[in-house]
Design a protein around this nucleic acid. Sequence first.
DNA 1: TGCATTACATACTAGTTAGTATGATGCAAA
DNA 2: TTTGCATCATACTAACTAGTATGTAATGCA
Lengths: 197, 197
Amino acid sequence: MQKQNTRVKILNTAFELIYKNGFNATSIDDIIKHTAFTKGAFYHHFKTKEDLGIALISEIIKPGMEKALILPLSTTKDPIASIYYSIKDLLLNDELFDIKYGCPAINLIEEMSPTNKKFYLQLSQIIISWENAIEQSIEKAKQNKIIPSSIISKEVSCLVISGYAGIRNLGKIKGYECYNTYLGVLDKYLKSLTINQ
Amino acid sequence: MQKQNTRVKILNTAFELIYKNGFNATSIDDIIKHTAFTKGAFYHHFKTKEDLGIALISEIIKPGMEKALILPLSTTKDPIASIYYSIKDLLLNDELFDIKYGCPAINLIEEMSPTNKKFYLQLSQIIISWENAIEQSIEKAKQNKIIPSSIISKEVSCLVISGYAGIRNLGKIKGYECYNTYLGVLDKYLKSLTINQ
DNA sequence: TGCATTACATACTAGTTAGTATGATGCAAA
DNA sequence: TTTGCATCATACTAACTAGTATGTAATGCA
């Protein structure tokens, strides 16, 4: 019980610091300084710093992305609208995330995936899952005659995901205004795919 | 003459290492180890590591982005096509960039702009310049009756730039295939704006 | 030619880094 | 009660970090 508590506390503290400053720029001393624990506790629960990073992804970032972006798509009657609103909710209403620091998953892809294979594999899974969820939504919309069958679902998912990744990057330098602009054009794009626009 | 040479050599070496590994993960010792010079040379030409980073942006990254993405837009007769082809050229033909490591400018925005004001200001300028160039292209296309005046140029630039930033991030985990998919949907989107599709 | 400045090289420092070694405490089962 | 394991704390190390101090060779200029 207390074991889980300590581990989770360290993990949450690490998440916040790494989210704001990056993985390499956040030291283990930094992390434990922000908790009531010491280095002994850290290395009791995590084998290495890399181990902490992997736990961070699989236990915090991945569930968070799934809850915000994937789950809404699998339970909806209006797949096209759900793509839009899941992203809108995440960008405008998620209190956990600060526009200045972007998206935790995208940040880690940027920083770690080119140089660390374990990070690369974990982060790939998140993106591929989201990609699949969007593509299934598009196929569902085709079946429901909401959008024409000529639409290539892979292209839609590519534009949606790259747009999300990009706007979370640009938000760091342009602020909230660009989120609203992006949501406006995303909405128009998705509606332009539908048969009765 | 030789002074410029040493500085430029250090700068180019630093660019390559920082492009691949990030700014924080690249040490000054790393950089000079990849040149024929020593720490004395480094600190003769650069006041601090931050100073090197700023020089990197203004002397290598900014001119590179302007040449690849901004200049083609200001000298063309077909502004919409130029937006597409400038990005296509950069993604598929630029030998300097490796898909695995993304875009140097986007990488630095991701890593440094939230925590370093000088980086933030320099990198903002690049994005704003590109944004303005795209918006002017859209306005030009409106004047030439290529696209309807109802199109909001700010929205187009937002989708194009966020798409570029995002796909250079996703390229790190998905490889070249996603560049082609992205270029396909970018082409379709831009053509969907035109009057005679 | 003499001199000052530039352009480096070498050797250092103080602080930080991930990770380890060892010890203390509590708790659960025997 | 005692044994053993889990849960931490403290103190350490070796390697690395940005930056400095100081010296020296080359270069431009009077």
